[in-house]
Amino acid sequence: MVIGTEINVFRGRATGLVKKPGILVGNNQAQQLEKALKDDPMPDIALGDGKTDHNFMKLCKESYVVSAKSKVEPVNPNKLPKPVVFHDGRLVQRPTPLIALLTVLWIPIGFFLACLRLGLLLLLPMPLVYYAVWALGVRVYIKGTLLPPAKKSIGQPGVLFICSHRTLLDPVFLSIALGRPIPVVTYSVSRFSELISPFKTVRLSRDRATDASAIKRLLQEDDLVICPEGTTCREPFVLRFSALFAELSNELVPVAVANEMSMFHGTTARGWKGMDAFYFLMNPSPAYEVTILNKLPNELTCGAGKSSYEVANSIQRMIAKTLSYECTSFTRKDKYRILAGTDGLVVENPTFFPK
């Protein structure tokens, strides 16, 4: 049970006003604790600062005062009982008074800068975008072998780039690295995101036969990008890959992407996804690292008798090893059920402040 200061909500929107009995401090803390306990036994342990917490600490069997002068450091992630894989919210750093002030002051500047950066992504030829975004503070690091486009004149099929998923802009920065726009297959992204995409996007239906047919047709026309995780992950983990892609092509190129943000996360599970690109580009100096790995040898593909699951799992491990991340068995549904209580479907008419 969590007992804390409650914010008033009107028609699903937070008003910013505090509910009665007000901010929980001093006597309010003790009153709310007594009300919550009713006939339950006394709590075992109380922790407080020794200034305003005496009243509720008296209701517990043992009390410990934490001095303001105590040197307390965050727990190392390796020592947590369970690793943090999923979390939501837009802020990268804890909003201390100073950071909160700087964030508020930066938002109008950052939004203008994001619009300018996005405009360059949409309007400039892809070979020039790399230099333009660097000039505007977006750091792009490219590693690996840059593959030339497929030769359609001799019937060469397109390459299927298997990309790890960090933000909505993963295919954009892969296209910047390759110097040409690469179409991408998407699932359940906002219509606005599709509208502002600098290249062709193809929405998947999650019907296996329909999606397989669409991807095969696209590969006959051009190279293609797919993110088999189906959703983004902020922490150093790679989610489970959907295995459908391995059945559709033997021309598979794994792509490991990583990014850095100092102020805003470019992903959300409960907010409006149409703003994801803007939030990432609102960071003062965001960074993207794109590592294009060697094309998967034919003996490791389904064409050599491997199952689609074996191929998907091996590529997941390759990407995780390249990034020094860990593989997980979590899926898109796991993420959205944990964070949003849904299956992660985007509504047709999203609002700026969804419930």
Rank of each mutant, 00 (worst) to 15 (best):
Q156D: 04
P157G: 04
G158S: 05
C163F: 01
H165A: 06
T167C: 14
L168A: 11
L169K: 09
L169I: 14
P171N: 09
G179R: 07
V184W: 01
V184F: 05
T186H: 03
Y187N: 06
Y187L: 13
S188K: 12
S188F: 00
S188A: 15
V189W: 07
R191M: 01
S193L: 13
E194N: 09
E194P: 01
L195P: 02
L195W: 12
I196Q: 08
I196R: 09
P198M: 07
P198C: 06
K200A: 10
T201L: 11
V202M: 13
R203P: 01
A209S: 11
T210Q: 11
T210F: 02
A212N: 05
A212P: 03
S213T: 10
I215Q: 03
I215W: 10
K216R: 15
L218W: 01
Q220G: 15
V225H: 00
V225R: 02
E229G: 01
T231I: 13
T231L: 13
R234G: 08
F237T: 08
V238R: 01
F241P: 01
S242F: 14
A243M: 09
A243N: 14
L244E: 11
F245A: 08
E247M: 13
L248E: 00
L248M: 14
S249V: 07
N250T: 15
L252D: 05
P254I: 06
A256N: 01
